[in-house]
Design a protein around this nucleic acid. Structure first.
Lengths: 342, 342
DNA sequence: TTGTACGCGTTATCAT
DNA sequence: ATGATAACGCGTACAA
């Protein structure tokens, strides 16, 4: 039963004052080199570690970052983004001695309550804002709460927070060009909600890409990123008098559900229908046919976000937006020339 | 710019001492009812909230629980368990004003380091121990670290921690009986690692179920719960001189990969091969064919674990093991009579 | 370099 | 029984 040594123990043992110990341990000037060494060796010998709690109280910092995940309970288990993203965050936090506080909620009301709670309880120094929405109220909320933050992507409202962005555009463009090169002319898009910035951005990229190729872009259907939504929307597209020969889905989950719908109808993918996803989930590689998709550097996104937020928290001047490598097309087996030109 | 009121402000305003305010706010005896009311109304009027940081320092509690997730980077994104489990935990923690600290690591070394870090930094009062292993060293580690804990399932070593268990057995039994009732006689099992308790338990249940039916149980192959492992193992089974007509997978991820392998070989599921999974992931419902699987009450598991751990942390006497409703078979479309008897 | 006040609740000790 | 006082936990900051 060894009681944990405090800074006072170190001071006594080294024959100096508490304050000087603090200076020595934080590498601050004003300590004679010799004294500093003595203090450090005593601290080491005693096995002294700073108390995060005491430091929190006196420095008004939590040494932790927060992540509030708002997801429909139905999607939450199948979303490949957050586990990888959290792993990325961890890569930046653990070496820095910081912790990650995670909150998972299922609706916007609970989401706001969660941010308020994190702030009221001083749980975190800053939060990572994901799934940016149009006119996102959370930005003003967080500013009001005096939390630091970084946003994943650039918000469409005035924001005092730095952004870490990955451009979806090139990936969607590549997907469309890939399909067009295979001979597809009637290409549909199953989009995420336009109320979400990345949902809207992906469908805009889709439309731009089609226009650039001189193709019609009337087959854009919006739904909610869920498997159920993807299935329903795919069914509706296939019910059209002139159904598409290829569908670009805004995420893998909807693409997988769409694949199931097509197969259930006896269509062969990719022969009768080509399909592309978005996310680059591993599971897509094991489906039959394996899913052509667009990959994003999720792990790196998490790491970079956490690092930037950490710098922002300590008041680093060098805090500015970061642009990560863009999303990239990963061609697998769910795309092929349309039946008509085979 | 309103500065947050402290307990001293309340005391001054109410004309009493700091200590008495604390007693009143914590519902402790020794405060006149009248005085108590006055103090509470002043606190209320001032909008006073206790500082978690100060409380942490003086009570030696963190008011937070920890969850260390150790997963191969490749599986991490496709595992449906943790997002739902965390959502369940959240359901118990948020109302109690507690936070959840999550750490995600990719190997055992980092896992141990993570627990040590949580303890050394006093980040959490207790942790939820998932994925119990044979002779799990983490139990002794946590006891040594003086962290409270609950285990998911019953460990095979001496443990001072309460357990929250879900019996996998009935689900596996039902799956086997379901397949046998359909006419299958040659049923294989793609198991998780036997070094993991639930991996071993599921395969033992599988063997027991087959024996009870008087069927041979020689087709048990162990792999690692990953899609890659599931695919490889399925391929090996299908390569046998006398391949199985049905495969019971120990989780959905492997089942989905196995489904892909079968289909890639031109086998039709369920006509040529029946497949069952384990987890009850939503995505399984959208595949073609939809996946017959075994569901576990994951959300409830998270909630119950967090509640129990919280009680353990505050020293509640009423802390004992909890048995949740057992896993249940969910029949969908990936199982059918074998071709031989159609 | 040192001494000491400070941050903010909790709790043990004392006085009435 | 009711309330006040002061020590405590542990670093940090600032005057001396």
């Amino acid at each position: 039963m060894t009681i944990r040594p405090t800074i006072a123990d170190v001071a006594r043992e080294a024959g100096v004052s508490k304050g000087l110990v603090s200076f020595a341990l934080n590498d601050r000037p004003g300590v004679a080199a010799e004294t500093r060494d003595r203090i450090l060796s005593v601290a080491n010998a005693l096995g002294w570690r700073p108390s995060v709690r005491a430091r929190s109280l006196s420095t008004d910092r939590s040494f932790a970052l927060g992540l509030v995940i708002a997801r429909d309970p139905e999607i939450i288990s199948s979303d490949p983004f957050f586990p990888a993203f959290i792993a990325g965050i961890e890569g930046a936090l653990a070496p820095a001695g910081q912790a990650l506080v995670v909150s998972m909620v299922s609706n916007e009301e609970a989401e706001v309550a969660s941010y308020r709670q994190l702030a009221a309880h001083d749980r975190v120094d800053g939060v990572i804002l994901t799934d940016l929405r149009r006119n996102d109220p959370r930005i003003a909320l967080l500013e009001g709460l005096r939390l630091k933050a970084v946003t994943l992507g650039h918000p469409d409202v005035e924001s005092s927070f730095p952004a870490v962005a990955v451009d979806d555009g090139p990936g969607i463009h590549s997907a469309v060009e890939h399909l067009a090169a295979l001979g597809h002319r009637r290409i549909a898009h199953v989009a995420g909600p336009s109320s979400m910035l990345h949902g809207g951005r992906r469908s805009q990229s889709f439309i731009d890409a089609l226009r650039a190729l001189g193709l019609a872009s009337d087959l854009v259907v919006e739904t909610d990123f869920s498997a159920a939504g993807g299935a329903k929307t795919t069914a509706a597209l296939l019910d059209l008098d002139e159904p598409p020969t290829a569908i670009v889905f805004a995420n893998d989950l909807m693409a997988i559900a769409g694949l199931g719908v097509a197969q259930r109808r006896g269509l062969r993918v990719p022969d009768d229908l080509s399909i592309t996803g978005f996310d680059g989930s591993d599971i897509g590689a094991y489906l039959y046919p394996s899913l052509t998709t667009v990959t994003t550097p999720v792990l790196e996104w998490g790491r970079a976000s956490a690092e930037l937020l950490l710098r922002s928290v300590i008041g680093d001047d060098d805090v500015h937006d970061i642009e990560l490598p863009a999303a990239q097309l990963l061609v697998r087996m769910s795309t092929a020339p349309p039946r008509t030109i085979r």
